[in-house]
Design a protein around this nucleic acid. Structure first.
Lengths: 377, 377
DNA sequence: TTATTTATTTACGTAATAAAACTTAATAGC
DNA sequence: GCTATTAAGTTTTATTACGTAAATAAATAA
């Protein structure tokens, strides 16, 4: 229906995260002429991806006052499906990253059939519940923990999903959703929502450290998700061998279990545990490990910020961020600004990350190939 | 004279490092039509940046045989100036990364005035010596060790260059060279020549670990030098605090000095030292440290390869590469290919790295801005 | 020989862009 | 108030980059 060319995508990128911009501002930032911007916005206006901002800002001086354009939140919707060993979450999100409707339920059966059996009707249900125009749904993103194996398409390595051995994630999801389907590892999906709507909104380069049962993460370089040669960039868990104590949820569960405490889900570890001496020790050791990791990431990637999040209980992640300290003090020889440590804005909505995947694919300028996109409708 | 537009640059990128390609092959790889490729090559042919390959390859079957085009080594030249506390090296390089003429001399006076006093006439001398068309010289790249301080443009941090405090590297070089001037930290410059002509020739993502008096490095992501937010990406030295033993040349010199051995330049440490027990111990420890660094880089960046080089004596760098071992065996939980460990092809020609900077700036597609480049002549 | 195949070029139409000119809507100065 | 000035945005026009279709070139296959 609408062609999102390279420069149309750049307009969307610039408008995202800002309240609104005049065409002249956009033209300046994009280094194109004003007439070009008129054309770009008129095509986006026609497709209802942007709207003119009615709120006329107080004129700044002489001359015709500018009329701002902004993204139309109703312009495009995406569906996100996220699951982990504990639960599955499905949402519809709008173009501003607002969750319009969601469905959350616990998971006990981790088989592919069961999870798809939940996801497929739930996607239709949340679309209905959100009361949105079905034709404006761009696609569905799925995200879940797990690395990719050397056998392309096959996930791997999460004990609870061991029955997935024969699933080809590049094909087998498609049948369950009546729209284009995309998938991504959980941390890499979350970093997309962080990039668009969260702690990375204004950053060109940053890293996410994503703490769940395992340890994941993702790297954003020049406002692009960087996957690495084998889709393994930012998989920081690899720096902490599973055979050793590590700052992961599973490691904490194992510790609790030696203390006679058995939790079934990570969220059951509420703040009341913070006084337990064994947990206090675990927190100190894990904080130290994450501090080393942060310094490592700072030196290797020189990001503007390092963002911490995940399905570990919120109070634990907050403890990490508050006790890491300033990297400037911790690291010797910081001749330039060390990265800032930030708390993720997405720990409680990883499904928004999944919903961001289709948007990322459709609106990132560098994904534009060819003269005209087939269009999302 | 010639406009290097976006797609002309892509052609150059594709031709670089390959013997020659037919227009049809180029068109396929670039996903443009054959007529477009005719236009692109005709403009490059006119500017003499490429030539048709006379060697007609054996025809593969029916149909008109293709005529390959390849980069014209005489098409463009660049000048590189590299210096470190030991010496200064100046070269003219052609479009194939071949050094056409060079000038090397030892440095004792490290003042800005002295170094420029050497470099400026030497640049003219090597151009003359190479016997090339002066109008085809694209520019001059300078590279040298040193981080950038928070004060933009001011280098910092190398003891021997402490007198440079008031030099603004963004301006003060210009007066000494009658051509466009670019500069870059030594490791980052070397990685460019590695990318074009060396160990990274065929790699999309890789890291360089650059061992000199200090410890530097650089990161290539998607065939682009990634500098990080504060130009500090890949400055791996930061992972080894100066107050602790570290795998750097200065650290080795300090050790030798405690053994009563005083070397004036790194290259004086020849292979005869390899039997010295203290040096053997240093090598073992440094190898262990570099192994940890390699695993860290592998996990963080997921590069295709990690390249080792630098002005440390060649036999030491070879010792590191040979004794690191396979990362696959060393790191637990490698579910995908670990990066390959490679030896730099540029340890003995860091000035080629400097000479690559102007070329990188002029021919990297993503540096193209606007409709037409002002041109390099 | 002639048909077929493949690479490349030529001719031409379309889309994206910038420059110049124009329109619109505000303020500044009288 | 009236007019000049300024700035935003649009229309018009010329240029450029690209793709499609057709033409040409140079080989093999029949």
């Amino acid at each position: 229906m609408i062609n999102l060319g390279y420069n149309e995508r750049r307009v969307i990128e610039l408008l995202r995260g800002r309240g609104g911009m005049s065409r002249i501002e956009l033209a300046r930032e994009m280094a194109v002429s004003a007439p070009t911007l008129t054309r770009l916005t008129s095509s986006l206006l026609e497709g209802a991806l942007i709207v003119e901002d009615s709120e006329s800002r107080p004129p700044t001086g002489r001359g015709k006052p500018s009329t701002a354009v902004k993204l139309n939140p109703e312009g495009l919707f995406t569906v996100g499906v996220y699951f982990n060993p504990d639960d599955i979450r499905i949402c519809v999100a709008d173009l501003e990253g607002k969750i319009r409707a969601e469905h959350v339920q616990e998971l006990d059966d981790h088989s592919f059939d069961h999870i798809m059996g939940v996801a497929s009707p739930a996607v239709e249900a949340v679309i209905k519940q959100a009361g949105i125009d079905r034709s404006r749904v761009l696609g569905c993103g799925l995200s879940f923990p797990g690395h990719f194996s050397r056998n392309p398409g096959h996930v791997f390595q999460i004990q609870q999903f061991s029955s997935w051995h024969d699933i080809d994630v590049n094909k087998d999801f498609d049948d369950y959703f009546d729209m284009p389907v995309f998938h991504e590892n959980d941390g890499k999906a979350v970093v997309l929502s962080e990039l668009y709507y969260g702690a990375g909104r204004n950053l060109r380069n940053f890293a996410l450290i994503w703490l769940t049962y395992g340890i994941g993460g993702a790297v954003v370089v020049q406002r692009q998700l960087y996957r690495g040669t084998n889709r393994n960039a930012g998989e920081f868990g690899g720096l902490f061998p599973k055979s050793h104590p590590r700052p992961s949820g599973q490691d904490l569960c194992n510790l609790l279990s030696t203390q006679g405490i058995n939790v079934r889900r990570l969220r059951e570890i509420d703040e009341s545990y913070s006084d337990h001496p064994a947990i206090r020790g675990w927190l100190d050791r894990a904080t130290d490990q994450l501090r080393v990791l942060s310094l490592t990431v700072a030196r290797t990637l020189d990001p503007t910020a390092i963002v911490f999040g995940g399905s570990l209980p919120d109070w634990i992640i907050r403890h990490f961020v508050e006790h890491l300290g300033s990297l400037e003090i911790l690291g010797e020889d910081f001749h330039v600004e060390p990265p800032e440590i930030r708390l993720s804005a997405m720990s409680d909505k990883p499904h928004l990350g999944a919903a961001t995947i289709p948007l990322y694919r459709a609106t990132t300028p560098s994904y534009y190939s060819g003269r005209a996109l087939k269009g999302w409708a």
